[in-house]
Design a protein around this nucleic acid. Structure first.
Length: 256
DNA sequence: ATGTCGGAACTTTTCCGA
């Protein structure tokens, strides 16, 4: 079973690229972020024609998350984190073929310090609380998405220009580390313990051409799933498409 | 400060967010 996450940065702007990648990569499950579309703007017919059922939570212009599943309809379990309604569409969760899948888009948090950074840390804290509940339920879960956290120094190219950025702040990293401390497994880091892996390249200053990247998109596996990991990768060629997103799709393969 | 995108606004550029 192949599960991917992709911050698409505008699903309608990127539809041709998405459909091409779906045909080539044939993922069973796709977690999308930054749809930048309302539900009615979602290209349901094109996705259906490509063979994918979908659940989503959209909003005008910003954010927006979806879960696609090949040859089946995801069964929606929730469209927000528990206990405090979020005006921003950043979390959706559904069951697909016996696995609980979450597509999440954590707040960017810039500039920091400030209210946006406070919102980011509060959001990651809410995610931590929910993640602990999912783990204690003992079901197989994949928490996939754009965490907007660079976990470790080697998850970003050599630079000082991000020193003040919310993506690398100790508080952001600590929130991510707390998730791993619960027992979640960072699938890319488990499969590539020492390699440099990037999933995002800013549009500015030729950062794609220079491979000046960051690892922001993560798939966390519940302990019950970790031993089923048999493959993982980043489809970097998608970042080179015409009118590409600034992120590339990240995928894992699980045994049945 | 800057770089470059996407989307919306009663707009044919300017802004916000990333």
């Amino acid at each position: 079973m192949k599960i991917a996450t992709f911050n698409i940065n505008g699903i309608n702007r990127r539809l041709d690229s998405l459909l091409e990648w779906l045909r080539e990569a044939e993922p069973d499950v796709v977690c999308l972020q930054e749809l930048k579309a309302t539900g009615s703007q979602l290209p349901r017919a094109a996705l259906e024609k490509a063979g994918y059922g979908a659940v989503w939570r959209g909003q005008p212009a910003w954010n927006g998350v979806a879960i696609l599943a090949r040859d089946t309809e995801p069964v929606l379990t929730r469209a927000d984190l528990p206990n405090a309604p979020d005006a921003q569409a950043r979390y959706i969760e559904a069951a697909v073929n016996g696995i609980l899948i979450a597509s999440l888009y954590a707040p960017n948090g810039n500039p920091q310090p400030g209210p946006k950074f406070d919102y980011k840390l509060a959001w990651l804290n809410r995610l931590n609380v929910h993640a602990a509940e999912l783990l204690s339920a003992g079901v197989p879960v994949v928490l996939a998405g754009d965490y907007n956290v660079v976990p470790e120094p080697h998850d970003i190219y050599s630079t000082r220009s991000y020193d003040d950025n919310a993506l690398v702040q100790p508080q952001s990293r600590e929130a991510y580390r707390r998730l791993l401390g619960q027992g979640w497994v960072d699938a890319i880091r488990k499969f590539y313990p020492n390699e440099t892996v990037y999933t995002f390249w800013d549009y500015r200053r030729n950062r794609w051409q220079r491979n000046a990247g960051l690892r922001l998109d993560h798939l966390l596996l519940s302990s019950a799933l970790a031993h089923r990991l048999v493959g993982a990768g980043v489809d970097r060629q998608v970042r080179g498409h015409q009118s590409a997103s600034d992120h590339a799709p990240v995928w894992i393969e699980l045994t049945d």
